[in-house]
Amino acid sequence: MFVRPFTVRRRGTRGPSSRGCRMSPNGSNPREAVFRSAFNPLSGRERARGAVRRLLGAVRAAPGAVSSFGRSFPSPPLGPLSFPFVAHHLPDLDDGPDLPLPRTVRGRVLLAAAGAPVIALLLVALWLTGGLDDAKAVQFKTAEPGKAVQNKLLKATLHEASVGADPDLGGYRLEVRAELESLADEPVPASQLNTLFKVDFGRKDLKAETMRVRLVRLPDTELGDLQPKMPEEVVLVWTLAEGDPADDKIKTAEETFGEDFLAEPDDVSAQLAEVDKAEITVTGAKFEPGFTDPAKRWWTDDKTAGVYTLPLEKG
């Protein structure tokens, strides 16, 4: 048979085997057989058998073997003709530092199967203990009445607290006489001060609702904006209602604007008769845009700045 020497390929064309090939029964071009027989001692079928043998050998090989492939594979004749075998190797697991992990595929599968439940258990434990949120400050910062507590927005000094009937709205209210001084550089609407103060009576059935701020020097006026760096004597007023303060679920539209809205305010006199002090927490503040509103405003950052325990004057 005439064997064509391997000539320089013309630019822009492919090799001779790509032009109008006829396929032989075992899937290869008869002309290819010429080259194959010249460079590869094994036929196609024999090479496939070799590959399967290699795979089985890798799985069966003992852990810690340096190169399982090299072991079970019949070592090829050395020399330039051996390069086709190297090209068919599976990737070598040997590079990289020596880790105490199983070398074999089966070993790794077993490790994963054993480790997954452990990791799942750890995740459950993490979730049960509160997840990755900031840990709440455990150290209580107690503040004496009359001593100032400061956060990023303001300096607050709470003096005394009293509870009594609300002549304007019916129901009952908690009033705390305090001094506020804003440390910001711009006026702050009083509505943004609401979340910075939290009231706890220590009872599950008594809670304080939205806070309003009244000026002492103008008894009929509610505070509009807290002006910067100007101490104001104020009265913080909370309407009291029944219910669990931890029950934070957001009211639906029907609940907020339905019959509840115009209902009679709660009669909490029974609970009030039993409490004689209130714990008022002043939290930290941060100045940030809202969730949907890009305008920046003041929010609580849920960290405690100070806790006042104030005795309640009744009446």
């Binding site: 550089d185 006026p187 509009g224 002006q227 910067p228 760096k229």
Partner: peptide, 16 residues
């Protein structure tokens, strides 16, 4: 209306 003091603070108009 707002009053800028010139030293960094701004005051809003009073509602009084």
């Amino acid at each position: 209306a707002e009053l800028e003091t010139g030293e960094g603070t701004t005051y809003g108009s009073s509602g009084v």
